[in-house]
């Protein structure tokens, strides 16, 4: 038997009842379901069943309790063991480990409490883990290191939805590398050339970076 237009509409509404009960529908869907509930006693009875199921499902899940302290201790022992491997003596530490320590030591104040900052830190982490982003000598340097003053630089803010891989590929393709950051405003200091470029060449290098708008939110030449 063919369903009438009203039946089809009601079926669609009935399918949405569980999400209406949890408040997980958008405003338009909520409005449609509420209108149908107001007009249909049978649908309201079905909605009561949904609410009963929801309550019992939540109680059933809560009966599972929580993982034991033993599980927590085991997890953090494993994490500590991995972290310990990263804290090898300074002389033996690789550029990667020292870089990780540097970013790991950033204070909450240094990391802006915003999703954009979160994305940038992830980006930077990805960048640090990508050897291609590191200066040719394979070492990581902060802005205060003498080497970081050699070459030509730009201040760059990456798009919040850019992935670490996209940034790694872009910088590798242009022979650029992150040397410092994040600075206020989510800016990173990027070496665009290992040589001292003249003003026009630097402007062109920065413009080339900035042209990738899906990855670079902003780029300006820097001393």
């Amino acid at each position: 038997m063919a369903m009438s237009a009203r039946d089809e509409k009601m079926d669609e509404i009935e399918l949405l009842l569980p999400w209406r009960a949890t408040g997980a529908l958008n405003a338009e869907e909520t409005r449609r379901v509420d209108a149908a509930l107001a007009a249909d006693a049978e649908l309201r009875r079905k909605y009561d069943l949904v609410q009963e199921e929801m309550a019992e499902s939540v109680l059933a899940a809560e009966e599972f309790g929580a993982p034991s302290l033993r599980a927590r201790d085991r997890l953090f022992a494993a994490i500590e063991a991995e972290a310990g491997l990263r804290r090898a003596p300074a002389a033996a530490r690789s550029w990667r480990v020292r870089a990780l320590d540097f970013f790991g030591s950033l204070t909450p104040g240094a990391i802006a409490w915003s999703a954009a900052a979160a994305a940038l830190v992830i980006v930077l982490q990805g960048a640090v883990l990508t050897r291609s982003l590191v200066t040719p000598g394979g070492t990581f340097h902060t802005a205060s290191a003498p080497e970081s003053r050699e070459g030509s630089f730009a201040l760059v803010a990456f798009a919040s939805d850019a992935t670490a891989q996209q940034i790694a590929d872009l910088l590798a393709a242009q022979g650029a590398s992150i040397v410092d950051g994040p600075k206020p405003g989510g800016l990173y200091r990027v070496r665009v050339s290992s040589k001292r470029l003249d003003a026009d060449a630097l402007k062109a290098a920065v413009a080339k970076l900035a042209s990738r708008r899906e990855i670079v939110r902003m780029a300006v030449a820097s001393e």
């Binding site: 953090f76 994490i79 500590e80 972290a83 990263r86 990780l100 320590d101 970013f103 790991g104 950033l106 990391i111 409490w113 915003s114 999703a115 900052a117 979160a118 994305a119 830190v121 992830i122 982490q125």
Partner: peptide, 11 residues
């Protein structure tokens, strides 16, 4: 933000 800090090895 927690995930970002975890990525930076923040226990």
């Amino acid at each position: 933000v927690l995930i970002a800090r975890i990525a930076a090895r923040d226990q």
